[in-house]
Design a protein around this nucleic acid. Structure first.
Lengths: 181, 181
DNA sequence: CTAGTTCCGTAGTGGTCGCTACGGAAGTGG
DNA sequence: CCACTTCCGTAGCGACCACTACGGAACTAG
């Protein structure tokens, strides 16, 4: 998982994996079927261990503002954890992929879409409840939140630290409708 | 260039390149020395053809607000050009790379850092001129602008259209200090 | 103790990687 | 017309890719 997190699917070889696990190729194939299945299990473990902040943000927070704030604040923390690779496996794990790995990339894209849908739904719910004005541009606001969320992962990979990302999140949340009224 | 733009450095093979150019490997090596040099020339051509909006934003606009607005608006356009790959070669060209391609990734990272520096300097200049208040958090504001810029490229790759990105940019610019006073 | 099963590492499979030695064709100068 | 240079494609280099057939060791059951 750490190897995939750091370098991505296609750029990690089975040899890299077997050496890191200190096993031989037949053992790896007996345990995980093939490289793609191993990757998907690694992604699932990653989502469970490091992606909990996403579901938590949307399930525990009453408004879209607070949910997105927690989403971004959580991303700033999770993507700059000391001793772990920077960035996000699901956001960056198959940015560059061969034609043969199209379905691997599609799997990650589906997970990203899931989060985008959560944002979208939360904003719409706010409009229905009156928390946000009826003329709010849902698409724009949801796209903005997704943009910042994914941008944070990029900056983390380029070496930005947690404080930098948290500063960016603080600025971003000021863009939220009503944040400064 | 289109191949690298679409898939990235390590995930495009010399064979892919020679077939697209309709030449044989020896011709490619005679013309471009090796794969890495070809990639760097492709990046240079890309920056020249599609990256002009960046320099233009910072050179022609008087304030950081307007420079960043033009940077993000330009990104929304350039990264969703019809008939061309989505996203940005410099932002996404070597997100996933092998250890052997570390220097290729470093070259792209340096170009990203250049833009981040442009943002940073423009914000500081605004503070010195009094356009922005003296207590403005330069790092946070610059990190925010870089986050949105890079996030737009991610969303473009996931299929978001120009209108979505422009909506996100409009929301983002509302976060700028003084934008809603 | 022996027969059977499970385990797992050795040693490859065919295929693709980035890259190049070399030879025949085409063009040039005397 | 001939010698020479330039060009460029054929064919293949060693290395690595994802993946696996197979054999010997170790453990288990009778």
């Amino acid at each position: 998982m750490l190897l995939f997190w750091e370098r991505g699917y296609d750029t990690v070889s089975v040899r890299d994996l077997t050496e890191a696990m200190e096993i031989t190729p037949p053992s790896l194939y007996a345990a995980f079927t093939d490289k793609q299945t191993l990757f998907e299990e690694a992604v699932e473990a990653y989502a469970h261990r490091y992606g909990g902040y996403i579901r938590e943000a949307f399930e525990t927070q009453p408004t879209a503002y607070r949910a997105v704030r927690n989403l971004l604040a959580g991303a700033a923390v999770q993507q700059t954890l000391p001793g772990l690779p920077s960035g996000c496996l699901i956001l960056n794990g198959a940015t560059n992929h061969t034609v043969a790995s199209e379905n691997v990339a599609a799997g990650l894209r589906a997970r990203r879409t899931d989060t985008a849908t959560l944002i979208h739904r939360k904003v719409r719910a706010d409009i229905e409840s009156g928390e946000l004005p009826a003329d709010t541009d849902v698409r724009a606001l949801a796209a903005f939140a997704a943009t910042v969320w994914q941008g944070l992962a990029q900056l983390a990979r380029d070496g930005y630290g947690r404080e930098d990302l948290e500063g960016a999140v603080a600025v971003a949340m000021a863009a939220w409708p009503g944040a400064r009224q």
